[in-house]
């Protein structure tokens, strides 16, 4: 059985979403249409059922948190935490950068003639020269000093 064409108007009537003229016309229709009367009755009963549900009440501590949010206190905490995190992240980045330059950048730095790396090259050269001198002394000094082998 097909429904009455006006069946959806029962919702509008129940919700007070009709103008006075529309409501009068629908009331006239209701007197003749059992399906719409029934539809309206069921909407009313459902609505009464739903409005009897209260739901939980808002706890005072939740309200307190909302007030702190409103005045920016919560944001202050977040900002403070964010600042600390940024500081830690910055420290880690500095350490990583220093480590990268110390290991990976050594050969590049030497090629580029970085002062600290030149010093290290010089020191390494000096060590090599000292080793050669020591070796020469071991090999040549005894004979030059007239010592027998």
């Amino acid at each position: 059985m097909s429904e009455c064409d006006h069946i959806r108007e029962a919702s509008l009537y129940h919700d007070g979403e009709m103008t006075r003229e529309e409501a009068s016309r629908f009331e006239e229709h209701l007197r003749q249409c059992q399906a719409c009367r029934r539809e309206l009755e069921e909407i009313r009963r459902l609505s009464a059922l739903l409005s009897s549900i209260r739901g939980p009440s808002l706890e005072s501590d939740v309200l307190g948190r909302l007030h702190r949010t409103a005045t920016g206190a919560e944001e202050g905490v977040v900002v403070s935490m964010a600042r600390r995190l940024i500081a830690v992240a910055a420290a880690i980045m500095v350490a990583c950068t220093a480590w990268t330059l110390g290991v990976g950048g050594r050969t590049e730095a030497a090629a580029a003639g970085e002062p600290w790396e030149l010093t290290a090259v010089t020191l390494r050269t000096e060590v090599s020269d000292a080793q050669r001198v020591a070796q020469w002394m071991v090999e040549n000094l005894p004979s030059e000093n007239g010592n027998d082998r």
Partner: peptide, 16 residues
């Protein structure tokens, strides 16, 4: 601040 608190008090229960 009072206006912020008023907004919370006015709407929080219904929004919850």
């Amino acid at each position: 601040e009072a206006a912020c608190h008023a907004l919370v008090d006015r709407f929080a229960p219904e929004l919850y």
